[in-house]
Write a protein that binds this DNA or RNA. Structure first.
Length: 283
DNA sequence: ATAGGCACCTGGTGGC
DNA sequence: TGCCACCAGGTGCCTA
């Protein structure tokens, strides 16, 4: 599923279809995803105009004209499909429903925004803007990795007491929010840090470069439209292509791509998730 | 407080 | 072809 770059790509695709347009009709096809849909979701959405689309961590936040915020999380397998009349040369012409289409939002500009999620780990919420700061999912999030408050001073401090392996620490959304399994593996390879290394034992000199490396990996992935393994597609149905640039993720058995490194990419399991790394150059 | 394990779901793949 | 085990971009709750 979607990590920060995929979510950013999806948000970017939704923006021209939704921004400054008004929701005219919402179809909710089941009572829940991971959590129940809000009781009054459909009636509260219809008639509101979209004033802004934002991303926070892996969440898409849609600001509405009557002061509500629509929150989407894509879970592991969530996709958003845009169809309808807007920029019709670009969007698919016909609105054809597919298996696992759980929510369809129709705008007054003719575009349809469909949330499809086979595994249903995703979820949707609707709340007032004033509640955002204390929202049960948003309040726990650490800094945005692309923002100013994520810097070497912060990261050194945040890792100082963590006994967990650095892999787990970087997946912890309270430390830094938006990274997932792929981009943590890729960033640790670029930083030459073993995923098994205890976070607190990393020297400040080793931690410092992680900040620009994490930013760089994410920015490259955003520029590539994210990574398409199984589920992720851009909202127009095209694949992202950052998966062609993976150095280690899903590369078990391949030679380490670092110049002059003789290592081979290994796969290990850490807290139930695969970690891919080179034990030669990642220490 | 914190780290690890497991549950929540469906679908794709590869082995036999 | 079929069946089965295993795997998957996440997160939160439970337990030790």
């Amino acid at each position: 599923m979607p990590e920060l770059p995929e979510v950013e790509t999806v948000k970017a695709g939704m923006t021209p279809a939704m921004l400054n347009a008004t929701i005219v009709k919402v179809d909710q096809n089941r009572p829940n995803l991971r959590y129940p849909f809000p009781d009054d979701l459909v009636s509260r959405l219809e008639g509101q105009r979209v004033t802004q689309l934002r991303r926070r961590s892996k969440y898409i936040l849609i600001d509405l004209s009557q002061g509500d915020v629509l929150l989407l999380h894509l879970g592991m397998s969530g996709r958003v499909r845009i169809s309808g009349d807007v920029q019709s040369a670009f969007y698919s012409q016909h609105v054809q429903s597919q298996k696992h289409d759980h929510l369809v939002i129709r705008m007054d500009n003719g575009s349809h925004i469909t949330f499809n999620d086979p595994r249903r780990f995703g979820f949707v919420d609707l709340f007032e803007q004033a509640e955002e700061a204390t929202h049960r999912h948003l309040k726990k999030l650490g800094p945005e990795p692309l923002g100013n408050s994520f810097n070497d001073t912060y990261l050194i401090e945040a890792l100082a007491n963590k006994r967990a392996p650095i892999k787990s620490a970087l997946l912890d959304q309270g430390i830094v929010s938006g990274l997932g399994n792929i981009y943590v593996c890729e960033a640790l390879w670029r930083a030459k840090i073993s995923p098994k290394k205890e976070a607190a034992k990393l020297s400040p000199q080793k931690i410092k470069p992680l900040v620009p490396i994490i930013r760089e990996v994410l920015q490259e992935a955003i520029a590539a439209g994210g990574s398409s393994l199984r589920d992720h597609r851009q909202t127009n149905g095209e694949m992202g292509y950052f998966q062609h640039n993976f150095s280690v993720y899903d590369q078990e058995g391949q030679p380490c791509p670092r110049d002059a490194c003789k290592g081979k990419i290994k796969r290990i399991v850490q807290s139930g998730r695969s970690s891919f790394y080179c034990s030669y150059c990642q220490r």
